[in-house]
Amino acid sequence: MMDREGKVLSVRLERSSGLRGLDNEIIALPKRASPPVFATKCLDWLRHRIRRAVKFLWPSAEIARANEKMFRGGTQ
């Protein structure tokens, strides 16, 4: 299981290979592969930039109504 930042929270082995050392290594591998801290900070920055772009491109309903009224010449 992973969290939203990509950090591995838990690992479960479905079927044993029959070799304890190999099974232990298979369980440890995903935890070592968790993204480094800088990658999660980059993702946070990217999410922030996307939110700002969405707010700019899709204004609130109130702003949309005001713009619509302005384009219609002030009458409704």
Rank of each mutant, 00 (worst) to 15 (best):
M70H: 03
W58C: 10
V8N: 04
D44G: 06
E62R: 06
R49L: 14
R51N: 10
E5Q: 08
W58Q: 11
A28M: 05
G18Y: 04
N67W: 08
L46A: 15
E68S: 00
C42D: 09
K41I: 05
R72G: 05
L9V: 01
K69D: 05
L19M: 12
C42F: 02
V11W: 08
P59V: 03
G21E: 15
A53D: 12
I27M: 09
R72V: 03
R47P: 12
L13A: 13
H48V: 08
F71S: 14
V8T: 00
P59Y: 01
E62K: 01
R72C: 02
N24G: 04
E5H: 05
L43F: 07
R47N: 15
E62G: 05
R12P: 00
R4H: 02
R51H: 09
L22K: 14
R72E: 06
A66Q: 07
R20W: 03
G6D: 01
S16I: 08
E25I: 08
W58N: 15
R12C: 08
N67L: 04
K55W: 04
M70I: 03
W45H: 14
M1D: 11
W58D: 12
L46S: 13
V8K: 01
G21L: 02
F38D: 15
A53L: 10
L43A: 10
A66F: 05
C42E: 11
G73P: 07
C42Y: 06
I27Q: 10
W45K: 15
R15Q: 15
P59C: 08
P36H: 12
I63W: 02
E62I: 00
F56W: 13
D44K: 10
L43Q: 12
T75C: 07
P35H: 05
F56L: 12
M1Y: 02
M2N: 11
I50V: 15
P36W: 06
C42S: 10
N67V: 01
R20G: 01
M1W: 07
R65K: 04
L13S: 14
D44A: 06
I26E: 13
F71N: 14
A28R: 15
L19G: 10
I50K: 14
V37W: 04
A39Y: 04
E14I: 12
P36R: 14
N24L: 06
K31D: 04
L9E: 06
D44V: 00
R49P: 05
D23G: 06
R51Y: 03
E5G: 09
D44N: 01
R47M: 15
I26Y: 11
S10Q: 12
A53S: 14
E62T: 03
L46Y: 12
I26L: 15
I26W: 11
E5C: 02
L13F: 08
L22V: 14
M70D: 07
S16N: 09
A53I: 02
K55Y: 01
G6Y: 01
E5P: 00
V37I: 08
K41M: 06
K31E: 01
F71I: 11
S17L: 05
I50Y: 10
R49A: 14
K55E: 04
T75V: 10
S34G: 05
R72H: 03
V54C: 11
R47C: 15
L46I: 12
